[in-house]
């Protein structure tokens, strides 16, 4: 681990905004591009540069994408020991880079990997870390990063800052920000790949990976979809989610559900929307049989149009909905599908 004496405590030496590029088998996670997009906006306010950092056995090929999303520098550490994510060597590689190059702000995706990594890196660096932020802004007066996050299961929002320590670190949930590539790539003369050589030896890494199991449901990034049809306890059983899948297909979207639906075994956790699931803001969110616990609302209330279908006219979900339908989703959705199919065939006939 880093010698604490090597950490520069003069915060004026820290510049630029870094984004950690999370990758698995050389494939970058979408959240990394969401963060690069946000970092561009923050950098323009702070008048500084955006850099990406990746660690692995082979990550240099990610440069093209990283630059496309606005990074001007790409710091990489490559070593066979870093092939799979393991806390300790990743922690040490990332900490060394920070100590040497001194970013002012460091953003990391709040995935299982990102949360594991950020908590250890921030401790090594003895700096502040704000988890699961949903809003980031630069304070015009001080230049500090203001990070806003939900707490108490989403009942309360807290705006946090880190005035005296650098980097200002925070994790951001996937789906909170949109990933938008640049119209034109950054000028080739200013982009740069910086390869950092750090000595690793497999013998020094005490943790060994014996087995990896990819769950059959795989990883579902709900944030990719413009339309999400979501179900809760009111869907009654697992089979009834088939109508939500059908509706989602008709609308070119995907299906999801509430924490309650996960607990009842209706849907896998990989499709959960909410505080303990994924955060989404699609163009259209249709909530079927979801009462709208606060922990669900924080994960979807910024959707552009929200249509809720629930038998209880006082269900909290209606308080955030654009259109409220006080009906039984189990009866309503099949009729809606029928109607939409009719409209579709009429259109095709024209």
């Amino acid at each position: 681990m880093i010698d604490l004496n090597k950490i520069d405590s003069d915060i004026s030496h820290y510049k630029d905004i870094w984004v950690f590029i999370e990758q698995t088998n050389g494939q970058a996670e979408h959240v990394s591009f969401e963060l690069l997009t946000k970092a561009r906006e923050l950098a323009s306010q702070r008048n500084c540069h955006v850099a990406a950092v990746a660690v692995g056995n082979s990550v240099a090929h990610l440069a093209e994408d990283v630059f496309k999303y606005g990074a001007e520098k790409f710091y990489i550490v490559e070593d066979e020991v870093l092939k799979d994510y393991r806390t300790e060597p990743y922690r040490d590689a990332v900490s060394e880079l920070v100590v040497k190059y001194k970013p002012e702000i460091f953003l990391i995706g709040a995935t299982t990997q990102g949360r594991d990594l950020s908590g250890t890196v921030a401790t090594v660096l003895r700096t502040g870390l704000t988890a699961d932020t949903t809003k980031q802004e630069i304070d015009q007066e001080t230049g500090f990063l203001w990070m806003t996050r939900p707490t108490f299961g989403g009942s309360l929002m807290a705006t946090i800052f880190c005035p005296k320590h650098r980097p200002q670190m925070s994790t951001v949930r996937p789906g909170v920000f949109k990933a938008i590539p640049l119209d034109a790539p950054v000028n080739g003369e200013i982009i740069e790949i910086i390869r950092e050589k750090i000595e690793f030896s497999e013998e020094d890494v005490v943790k060994k990976i014996l087995k990896k199991v990819i769950s059959s449901e795989g990883n579902v990034t709900l944030g990719f979809y413009d339309v999400i049809v979501s179900g809760g306890k009111g869907m009654g059983n697992k089979e009834n989610f088939n109508m939500l899948k059908e509706l989602a297909d008709l609308l070119g979207g995907t299906w999801a559900g509430s924490r309650k639906a996960v607990e009842l075994g209706y849907i896998p956790q990989t499709r959960q929307v909410g505080q303990t699931g994924q955060t989404v803001h699609p163009k259209l969110y249709i909530a079927c049989g979801i009462s709208g616990a606060i922990q669900h609302l924080v994960g979807m209330q910024t959707s552009e149009i929200i249509i809720a279908i629930n038998t209880d006219k006082d269900a909290p979900i209606f308080n955030v909905s654009t259109y409220c339908i006080v009906e039984d989703a189990l009866k309503f959705v099949p009729k809606l599908i029928e109607e939409l199919k009719g409209m579709q065939s009429t259109r095709r006939a024209q």
Partner: peptide, 21 residues
């Protein structure tokens, strides 16, 4: 001696209930 400071805490903005069909 905590690096992070809570600047403010607030309840999330309450959205207006939309139209009932």
């Amino acid at each position: 001696n905590s690096p992070t400071i809570v600047k403010k805490a607030f309840t999330p903005e309450k959205k207006q209930r939309g139209a009932t069909l």
